[in-house]
């Protein structure tokens, strides 16, 4: 039974990292609904609402970064894949998990915060930046997860 080798584990790691996109998709979706409601009252706020809607999108990008870094290091993008040991594969899997998991929930939570910030913007447009800061507070934890993922990835010797 050699179904699962190091390369498989590494690819699963990349796949998990990309799952952060779930959080971003849901977050951007939640924020988008709120943005439409704001726009219905004042179409001039499109630019402002777009910025707030985009904020929960970063988790997906962070996930993409890690997935891309893993694929690059194992040679998936350059043609021939390396032969990884089980241990190396497991390291890559470990690298994918932090941003993948944290990204999902932080993206959703950030989407909710962004939706509230959008309501704030509709009532008090001058206070928008503070809404952005509130929303960005959530992102801190996605950034930390990204950091952990990157640090693990950097230490893997292939």
């Amino acid at each position: 039974m050699n179904m699962i080798d190091g390369n498989t584990l590494a690819l699963i790691g990349a796949a998990i990292a990309a799952l952060a996109g779930i959080g971003s998709a849901m977050g951007v979706g939640i924020a988008g609904q709120a943005a439409s409601a704001v726009l219905a009252e004042d179409p001039k706020k499109f630019g402002k609402t777009l910025i707030l809607q985009a904020l929960p999108g970063t988790q997906g990008i962070y996930g993409l970064i890690i997935a891309f870094l893993i694929m690059q290091k194992i040679g998936l993008l350059g043609g021939a894949m390396l032969d990884l040991t089980m241990a190396q594969g497991a390291y890559f899997l470990a690298a994918g998990i932090p941003i993948g998991l944290v990204g999902i929930w932080s993206g959703i939570a950030q989407g909710k915060a962004a939706a509230a910030a959008l309501q704030l913007t509709s009532k008090r447009p001058d206070q928008m930046v503070k809404g952005i800061i509130y929303t960005a507070m959530v992102e801190t934890y996605a950034i930390f997860a990204l950091l952990v993922s990157v640090l693990i990835w950097l230490r893997i010797a292939v």
């Binding site: 990008i61 962070y62 970064i65 801190t140 950034i143 930390f144 990204l146 950091l147 990157v150």
Partner: peptide, 9 residues
């Protein structure tokens, strides 16, 4: 630490 993480991103 975000200085590092966002810079890397």
């Amino acid at each position: 630490a975000r200085l590092l993480a966002l810079g890397l991103a």
